[in-house]
C-alpha cells in the first residue's frame, strides 16, 4: 500500500435539469445547475480498497463513472499512476481501459442478452490479446470460470438463463479477463441475496490478494463497506465530508453526518442506544437557493444544539477537509 494508483483532484460534475422551451431562452442559464460532484479529491493506493458511501443522489456513482470517462466532467484532474489522464482522448484512453475496469450495478444491463457466456468472455479476452489463438482463449475461459467458481456447463447459456449470483460472477470474470489493476465496483452485491452476497464478497477479497488489485468500492450498504474497505470516504451532496480508516469511520466518526449514518443501521439500533441526533425534522439542502456554508447544516444535530452558529451557514466559510488524526480528515466546523 505505498504507490498511489489513482489520484482524483477537485473533481466537479454539474447536471442541468431539462428545461422547457421558454426558460431555456432566458439568460440565467447556469443558475439551475446541480453540482452532483462538487470538488471531490481522494487518493487510492496499490492493493487498497477505498469505500465510497452515501445516500442515493450523493454523487458516488457519478464519481466512479467520471474516473472511467464514461461521463464527462466539468473540472478536476484524474491521475493514473502519476500520469494526468484528464485530457486523454478516447483513443488515448483505450489502452488504459484494460487497467481500469468497472463492475456495474445493473446485472442485466451489463451483459449482452444475445451473447452466450462463452462469447462474452471470449470477446473480453480478445480485447487484451487480439491475436490469441482459439486454444489459448479456450484455456483462459476455463481459468476464468475457475477463478469465479462457476461450472463449465454454463458456457453455452445465455445471461437470462443464469441466476443473479451467476450473472454477477460472469460480470466479474469478464472484468478479470482483461487483467485490470484497478476496479471500480458500483454496488456489486445490491441485487443479490444475503447468502450469495457473502460468496461474492469473499471472491472479491480473494482476487484482491491474488492479483494485488485496487478497488474503489461504491455502496450504500454501510456494514458491507466497513467490512470490505481499508479506508472509507463518506459523501454528502457531492462532497466528501469525512475520510479515514474504515474502523475509525465506523466506530469513532468525527462528522455528525457519518455518525447519523452509522447509527441508522437498523440492526445496530435494536442492540445499542441510538447515537447522536434524532432523525426527526430534517431540513433538506436546496441547490437552487443554497444557504452557503456547510451543506449538512439544515439536517445537522450539532448545528441545532449549538444554537445555529452563523459560521456554519456563512458562504465565505464553507468547511474544508481538515486533518482530525493521522490519515483521517473531516470537513466540519465542530467535529465530534
Amino acid at each position: 500500500m505505498s504507490q498511489p494508483i489513482l489520484e482524483v483532484i477537485e473533481l466537479r460534475k454539474n447536471f442541468y435539469p431539462r428545461r422547457g422551451l421558454f426558460s431555456s431562452l432566458s439568460k440565467e442559464k447556469n443558475a439551475r445547475s446541480i453540482p452532483a460532484v462538487d470538488g471531490v479529491s481522494f487518493t487510492l493506493h496499490e492493493n487498497e480498497t477505498l469505500g465510497l458511501v452515501g445516500e442515493s443522489g450523493c454523487g458516488k456513482t457519478t464519481t466512479g463513472k467520471a474516473i472511467l470517462k464514461l461521463m464527462s466532467m466539468n473540472s478536476g484532474e484524474i491521475r493514473y499512476r502519476g500520469t494526468d489522464i484528464t485530457a486523454y482522448t478516447p483513443e488515448q484512453f483505450r489502452p488504459l481501459r484494460r487497467d481500469i475496469q468497472m463492475i456495474f450495478q445493473d446485472l442485466d444491463a451489463a451483459l449482452n442478452p444475445k451473447m452466450r457466456i462463452a462469447d462474452i468472455l471470449r470477446e473480453a479476452i480478445h480485447v487484451r490479446e487480439a491475436d490469441a489463438d482459439a486454444v489459448t482463449v479456450q484455456r483462459q475461459i476455463y481459468d476464468l470460470l475457475d477463478l469465479v467458481n462457476l461450472k463449465k456447463n454454463k458456457l453455452s447459456n445465455y445471461p437470462s438463463e443464469l441466476s443473479g449470483g451467476e450473472k454477477r460472477r460472469i460480470g466479474i470474470a469478464r472484468v478479470l479477463a482483461v487483467r485490470p489493476k484497478l476496479i471500480v465496483a458500483d454496488e456489486p452485491t445490491s441485487a443479490l441475496d444475503v447468502s450469495i452476497q457473502a460468496q461474492v464478497i469473499n471472491l472479491l477479497r480473494d482476487l484482491q490478494d491474488q492479483f494485488g488489485l485496487s478497488f474503489l468500492f461504491i455502496s450504500h450498504d454501510l456494514q458491507l463497506v466497513e467490512l470490505m474497505s481499508h479506508r472509507v470516504a463518506v459523501m454528502y451532496l457531492g462532497q466528501i465530508v469525512e475520510m479515514g480508516p474504515a474502523k475509525e469511520i465506523a466506530n469513532s466518526p468525527r462528522h455528525p453526518y457519518t455518525s447519523i449514518l452509522w447509527s441508522s443501521i437498523v440492526e445496530k439500533r435494536s442492540r445499542e442506544i441510538p447515537v447522536t441526533g434524532s432523525a426527526s425534522a430534517w431540513g433538506v439542502f436546496d441547490f437552487e437557493r443554497p444557504l452557503g456554508g456547510c451543506r449538512f447544516a439544515p439536517r445537522c444535530p450539532v448545528y441545532a444544539e449549538r444554537g445555529r452558529p452563523s459560521i456554519c451557514t456563512d458562504p465565505a466559510n464553507s468547511p474544508t477537509l481538515k486533518v482530525a488524526s493521522e490519515g483521517h480528515v473531516v470537513s466540519c466546523h465542530f467535529p465530534l
Binding site: 449470483g165 447468502s195 452476497q197 457473502a198 460468496q199 464478497i201 477479497r205 450498504d221 456494514q223 466497513e226
Partner: peptide, 23 residues
C-alpha cells in the same frame, strides 16, 4: 453470512452459504 464486523473470520472472509438459492 451477513456482513457484520463480528462475523468476519481471522482470514478476513465471511462464512458464506455455498450453492445457490433453491429453485
Amino acid at each position: 453470512s451477513t456482513p457484520r464486523p463480528e462475523n468476519v473470520t481471522a482470514t478476513g472472509r465471511l462464512p458464506a452459504i455455498e450453492g445457490e438459492v433453491l429453485d
